[in-house]
């Protein structure tokens, strides 16, 4: 099987190229969410360019739409569009590769960008799939700062009310948002207990560990009668030493020296993963 750990570092370099080229983007969250997306797209979800119109496919909505660069990297690796084109055109004048997911592009189901929408939308998708007895599973990824949106909790409530065990939500729990620590801005302590209180099955894992994530998603597939939340404890900026756990790298653009240093570190990590 393909070395997914190495792949996650390799795809981070595409993110870096997009952001360095366009001089805009949300690099910190891209790097925290990368293993989540790689696990889902490369191993867990039944989504591919070949089945994108099959009603029985799985569904994915990128609720934390600002991590679009990571999303584009993974979709391109999956074959939905050429990565060279994304890197060349990302956020440029008249580009279709805009700074948030846009469903005019292949592989993207729903537009996002405003936070707190992905989960309620996925509740609707999961409910419809259940009504039609489809095998589809429905996935979304939210940021932890996003959890302050009230609409998230409307969705959390409804998903357990409808007993949507075909729904799996991942929280990219990197503990940082644009203004600083999520716990200072609006705290989410006892997050597991919060979801459990709403009737969810909750799995807390190292969110930059692909093996742990895949085990969690496999477990979610066996859960009956309620939705699953995977709390993915991640490192914002994961993979580049000077970006890790720095709120400032939420949407900072690297200069040339930083870009070169980041490429060097990611290449080293990719090679180390390949040699593991």
């Amino acid at each position: 099987m393909e070395n997914l750990k190495a792949k996650a570092f390799s795809l981070r370099k595409n993110v870096l190229d997009m952001i360095y080229g366009a001089k805009t983007g949300h690099i910190g969250g891209d790097f925290s969410v990368m293993e989540i997306l790689v696990s889902l797209y490369m191993k867990e979800m039944n989504i591919s360019p070949e089945n994108q119109n099959d009603p029985d496919r799985d569904y994915f909505v990128m609720s934390k739409g600002h991590s679009v660069e990571a999303y584009y990297s993974v979709l391109a690796a999956k074959g939905f569009f050429p990565i060279e084109e994304v890197i060349e055109k990302f956020s440029r004048f008249r580009s279709k590769y805009i700074g948030h997911p846009n469903n005019k592009l292949p592989g993207i189901e729903m537009n996002s960008g405003s936070l707190g929408h992905g989960l309620p939308v996925c509740v609707g998708i999961a409910k419809a799939c259940r009504m039609d007895n489809r095998p589809s599973r429905v996935y979304t990824v939210m940021g932890d700062g996003e959890l302050a949106e009230g609409s998230v909790w409307e969705g959390v409530m409804a998903a357990s009310h409808y007993q949507l065990d075909n729904l799996c939500v991942t929280v990219d729990r990197n503990r940082l948002q644009i203004s600083g620590s999520t716990e200072d801005v609006m705290h989410h302590e006892n997050l597991k207990a919060r979801f459990e209180a709403f009737g969810w099955h909750v799995i807390s894992v190292d969110g930059n560990d692909i093996d742990a994530l895949c085990a969690a998603y496999d477990e979610a597939k066996t859960v009956k009668g309620c939705p699953t939340a995977v709390i993915a404890n991640t490192i914002k900026g994961c993979g580049v030493s000077f970006m890790e756990n720095q709120a400032g790298w939420h949407h900072k653009v690297p200069d040339q020296a930083q870009y070169e240093q980041a490429v060097k570190e990611l290449t080293e990590k990719e090679e180390a993963a390949r040699n593991e």
Binding site: P55, Y59, E109, M110, H117, P120, V121, C122, V123, G124, I125, A126, K127, A128, C129, M131, D132, R134, S136, G150, S151, E154, G155, M157, A158, H161
Partner: peptide, 28 residues
């Protein structure tokens, strides 16, 4: 009853759930 969905007093959810159902082939 199989084509009716009660969402509760949550209008934001009402619209997002409807959008999701449309995405999955329904006509909400």
């Amino acid at each position: 009853p199989d084509q009716f969905v009660e969402v509760g007093i949550a209008e934001q959810n009402l619209v997002s759930i409807s959008a999701g159902m449309a995405k999955a082939g329904k006509r909400p």
